[in-house]
Nucleic acid binder design. Structure first.
Lengths: 208, 208
DNA sequence: CCTACCGATCGGTAGG
DNA sequence: CCTACCGATCGGTAGG
């Protein structure tokens, strides 16, 4: 099995290693946390998936919760760095919202299991990190709020809509995408994002 | 099963019991499963919440998974029985969709924690019951598909929308509601449902 | 990364 | 519903 000790590689030195153990632990953990949840995954599950004995994991990671923290934090950052730059682009609000939705679906498609962890497992973080994760999630919501608000100000979006509910509706639809996204589908992530944007922006009624 | 009752009360006999132990176990379990998840909740957590020693729970329930099964099944049934009767009502598709959305939000508001369990914890059911739960979830989705399709057939809903994505968008927004619903808000569940329906049916653009 | 192991906690049961 | 307890599994560690 995994007979790959990379003692030959010193820090800073160029390495042609296949996969460094830390990354393969993180990858396996993302998959397991996504499928079974944080509390439903044991360190032994992770060790088995990596092909190592349970105790050996601790040569590369600090604790189960540190693993969760790294995954959730890196995961949220992926969404933030994809969507936040769109907020202030010199484009109409509907076009910016469409691009934000598309970006969101693309990030989900890049790693659906990571997205599942991001949306569902952050609750299990301990208290200093929990607050930080919640704050980052709020930042993400705010990006959509700002686009929506600028659309209302521009006279483009319906001002009588309840702003909070409208944004929560959009975010709900988006946060649910990792639940149904499948790489098997024929549509590209970008096309899927456009379809979601079509539904959300123009609603269901026939365009006349 | 579980014919274990307090010995003083015979079946059929009137009982002035305050809360029967079975119900208080189920109530506590819904709350804990909703907050900590199925795998994150121990039988000892439940026992403590009920005010009883861990072993005593088994006088009233069969197993942890049976508890989950009952909760998920009863929970899904609540959504199905609220929404399915609306599908074939002699009303326009948009009015039926609005009522279905309102009904969904009302069911969520009735017991947000139960809704969280229904939407997130069904994965942990074992195999005969898992398939049954998935089938019931599909039935729920089909109710919305049918309303949407009848709206397209009636020339009311936009036929160029991707049907599957449009319905998944709606369901995503709805399935996310227990994540943000708070009984503290000033709007009633029915009003909240209307706001969600406003966003989803007509989209964001100004009505002219 | 393995061997060997720790104390704590898990779901659940026998017998009252 | 309690007492008393079961074997299994948990996250994690010491020392190589």
């Amino acid at each position: 099995m995994a007979r790959s000790k990379t003692a030959a590689t010193k820090p800073g030195e160029k390495s042609e290693e296949t996969v460094r153990p830390r990354s393969s632990i993180l990858n396996a953990t993302v998959r397991l946390f996504g499928q079974q949840g944080y509390t439903g995954t044991s360190m032994r599950d992770i060790a088995k998936a990596v092909g190592v004995l349970p105790g050996s994991l601790y040569a590369h990671i600090d604790s189960k919760e540190t693993l969760l923290l790294e995954i959730v934090d890196q995961g949220i950052n992926g969404f933030l760095s994809a969507v936040e730059p769109i907020v202030d682009l010199p484009l109409s609000a509907d076009e910016r919202l469409r691009r934000a939705i598309r970006a969101h679906v693309e990030v989900v498609a890049e790693n659906p299991e990571l997205s599942l962890v991001v949306f569902h497992q952050w609750r299990f973080l301990g208290e200093p990190n929990l607050a930080a994760a919640i704050e980052k999630r709020r930042r993400y919501e705010r990006a959509f709020v700002r686009i929506f608000e600028s659309g209302v100000e521009a006279g483009l979006f319906e001002p009588t809509l309840n702003k909070r509910i409208a944004v929560l509706t959009i975010l709900g639809a988006l946060n649910w995408t990792p639940e149904w996204y499948s790489p098997e589908g024929s549509a590209t992530p970008s096309q899927l994002g456009d379809m979601v944007a079509d539904s959300l922006l123009s609603g269901l009624f026939v365009r006349r």
